[in-house]
């Protein structure tokens, strides 16, 4: 792994210290942990009374109530859980586009979310979407300990879902980090991600060259994933057409997010730190 990416993880962890995840109440599920869940459990926080049922722990019977009412009544306490974050990272070749800081920003952003998850007392897992979804080695450890592989997949996210979907934890938080630049129905993709999730965040990470068309002139466009080459002369009208196409594409994703309850934000890789307030404004990250 290049030192540049390793440094991105470190920088991301440092930046992530400022943020937490907005964990909703309905997302309070998972293994026993430090956060109170909505369901009853074994914490010391009283929740309610209920009539004794055979099989209830006799240690929870409130004997004073029994003395006053002559009914066996048990005390219920709230459960303590650890919420979970599943980071879905697009590991196709386009995310490590040449001459851009897209890959570094991707890992910096993933590191921010992982650190923010720790701040929210959430566990996290990192899923790489390539030829199917697979876990990132050491993904449960702090980000600087992650083993970042090369991005060599030419498949987009829908293909990865079809080949091997991720085993995301139920009622967990799910964050998708991708450039979203592939043809397909965003709604179908989002429904797959949002299935069983408590909250879904979609972060579109674009390089500056993705967000803004190149200057006018003769261009030889090279698709980083398929290797397809396309020569064209780009003029002002072509630039405008590109901008319009990007806006339409983002609108389609924004609509899909609206329909699935997900939150959507776009981040430019070269301006990642400047874009973090955008994520805060979108309530994807919460300042600590």
């Amino acid at each position: 792994m290049p030192d540049r990416l390793r440094q991105s993880l470190v920088d991301g962890a440092r930046l992530g210290q400022r943020y937490a995840l907005p964990v909703p109440q309905h997302a309070l599920a998972g293994a026993a942990g430090e956060r109170l869940a909505r369901r009853t459990g074994s914490s010391v926080d009283f929740q309610d009374y209920r009539e004794y049922q055979p099989g209830d722990d006799t240690r929870t019977i409130d004997w004073s109530v029994y003395g006053r009412t002559d009914k066996l009544t048990v005390k219920l306490y709230r459960d303590e859980v650890t919420p979970h974050l599943d980071l879905l990272v697009d590991a196709s070749r386009s995310m490590s586009l040449d001459a851009t800081s897209k890959a570094a920003s991707l890992w910096k952003l993933a590191s921010i979310f992982a650190t923010a998850a720790d701040n929210s007392r959430c566990t996290h897992a990192v899923w790489l979407a390539g030829d199917g979804f697979r876990r990132l080695p050491n993904d449960t450890l702090p980000p600087p300990a992650w083993e970042i592989p090369d991005f060599d997949s030419a498949r987009h996210l829908d293909d990865a879902f079809a080949i091997l979907p991720p085993k995301c934890r139920r009622l967990g938080l799910r964050v998708l980090i991708s450039d979203l630049l592939w043809p397909g129905d965003p709604l179908a993709t989002l429904r797959r991600i949002a299935n069983g999730a408590a909250e879904v965040f979609v972060i579109q990470l674009l390089a500056r060259t993705d967000a803004e068309p190149p200057p006018p002139g003769n261009l030889r466009l090279e698709d980083s994933e398929s290797g397809q080459v396309f020569d064209l002369y780009l003029d002002a009208s072509g630039q405008q057409q590109y901008r319009d196409a990007l806006v339409r594409h983002q609108e389609s994703w924004r609509d899909a997010c609206r329909q699935t309850g997900a939150r959507f934000a776009t981040v430019v890789a070269e301006q990642l730190e400047e874009s973090l307030p955008t994520l805060t404004a979108a309530q994807i990250l919460v300042p600590v």
Partner: peptide
């Protein structure tokens, strides 16, 4: 002369 321009995807160049 044609400048080489790697792009993430040709999706947004479909109109061309």
């Amino acid at each position: 002369k044609h400048r080489r321009q790697p792009v993430s995807s040709l999706l947004l160049w479909q109109h061309q």
